[in-house]
């Protein structure tokens, strides 16, 4: 893919992001002015204890929540001023979500789950199926396509979720504590999968509080009290903000 050339293009550009809950003296700042740039092809881990604002930041980055003030550009498009309907389109096209609790649609086969975001984008059935099967092949679940979530192990469910996130070819893969509900073997498999996906050029952002998960990323951002307190490179690849 365009791994080499994308070093210059910015996927995430957050400027002075503030998220305030409540008002007046009792106001709590979940984000107290965060500036963050993430470039295409990066593999970033965001760490911090609970209450540090990392989940709030993840919700902002995923266009699931709106910030109180500040700007957010995703792929060069300002989305901090979009309405809910436009945001749902952005989520569908630009972002692939992976959640701690998998969040697959119950009583729906793996294939249908992977097809669903493409269905919302209006992609035709045949094309959808082709892309969904390809994505399931990437995560190694070709033999589980017609299984429902309850018939799959936790690791398999999370891989279906990864396939669902990949199938829309998003600019950004956003994972919120993806290994939180997995055993160590499944965790290892999933992190290998992330490496593989990132190696293919996809931008990956993982929110986690586990050090061994963060170690696999190329860049680690630590947060505390709604602010970024450190931003370091794990290895000598990637760029820093």
């Amino acid at each position: 893919m365009d791994n080499q050339t994308s070093n210059a293009s910015v996927v995430i550009d957050v400027r002075k992001a503030v998220k305030k809950y409540g008002s007046g003296e009792s106001a709590i700042y979940a984000l107290a002015g965060v500036d963050l740039k993430i470039y295409a092809g990066e593999y970033v881990a965001i760490m911090g204890p609970s209450g540090s604002g990392k989940s709030t930041l993840m919700n902002m980055l995923g266009a699931l929540d709106i910030m109180t003030s500040g700007q957010y550009f995703l792929d060069g498009i300002e989305i901090s001023s979009m309405d809910e309907n436009a945001l749902s389109v952005v989520r569908g096209r630009k972002i692939g979500f992976i959640f701690q609790s998998f969040n697959l649609i119950p009583r729906t086969t793996a294939l249908a789950n992977v097809e669903l975001p493409m269905a919302y984008q209006g992609i035709k059935s045949a094309e959808r199926k082709k892309r969904a099967l390809a994505a399931l092949q990437v995560v190694g679940l070709t033999d589980r396509v017609s299984h429902e979530p309850t018939e799959l192990s936790g690791g398999q469910q999370q891989r279906v979720a990864v396939a669902r996130a990949l199938a829309t070819r998003p600019s950004l893969l956003l994972a919120d504590e993806p290994t939180g509900a997995l055993d160590s073997k499944s965790t290892e498999d999933l992190l290998d999968l992330f490496d593989q996906i990132n190696a293919a050029g996809r931008t990956v952002v993982v929110i986690t509080h586990e050090h061994d998960v963060a170690q696999r990323a190329k860049r680690v951002i630590r947060m505390r009290d709604g602010k970024i307190i450190s931003d370091t490179l794990n290895a000598n690849q990637g760029v820093s903000a």
Binding site: V89, R91, I105, L116, Y120, T168
Partner: peptide, 12 residues
């Protein structure tokens, strides 16, 4: 489930 659908791009 509605939340999941919205997160993966279901319009209102």
């Amino acid at each position: 489930e509605i939340g999941i659908r919205k997160a993966i791009g279901a319009p209102k």
